[in-house]
């Protein structure tokens, strides 16, 4: 983990309706190779990005959300999901896509569901906030 800046990528829109989330993921994947303290947050409709079982076969659009798992290959600090956003959307905490990191022995899921109050602290402890 770098000693660099704390950068938080905030996602507040769902997939496919617009390209924002897909291009935001591209930024996060580039940011991940810089030696900084990178985290992601999923808020509001952004929580739909981590909904499992997405298939874009019918849309004939790229199913980009599978690439969130690639974040586990980098030194990403944390992936935060706001509990309140899940709750009002009828999404279950235990049913989110996992982003697993740690190659040999003791893998862990980077995705962490947090309350609004916890997320408030995360947001206010960053150096840079990037959002779509």
């Amino acid at each position: 983990m770098g000693d660099g800046k704390k950068i938080l990528f905030i996602n507040r829109r769902g997939p496919y309706g617009t390209i924002y989330a897909q291009e935001a993921l591209e930024v996060a994947l580039v940011g991940a190779v810089f030696d900084q303290k990178i985290s992601l947050a999923f808020i509001d409709d952004g929580v739909f990005l981590l909904r499992p079982g997405q298939s874009t076969v019918g849309l004939q659009m790229k199913q980009f959300t599978a690439a969130y798992r690639a974040l586990g290959d980098f030194e990403i600090h944390r992936v935060y999901v706001e509990r309140e956003s899940l709750q009002v959307r009828g999404m279950k905490e235990e049913n989110l896509m996992e982003i697993v990191t740690g190659p040999d022995g003791g893998t862990r899921n980077l995705v962490k569901v947090v309350s609004s109050v916890e997320l408030m602290d995360v947001i206010h402890s960053q150096d840079v906030l990037l959002n779509d």
């Binding site: 507040r12 947001i123 206010h124 960053q126 150096d127 906030l129 959002n131």
Partner: peptide
Amino acid sequence: NDTVQSWL
């Protein structure tokens, strides 16, 4: 302010 967050 040290940081700016844009709620779009």
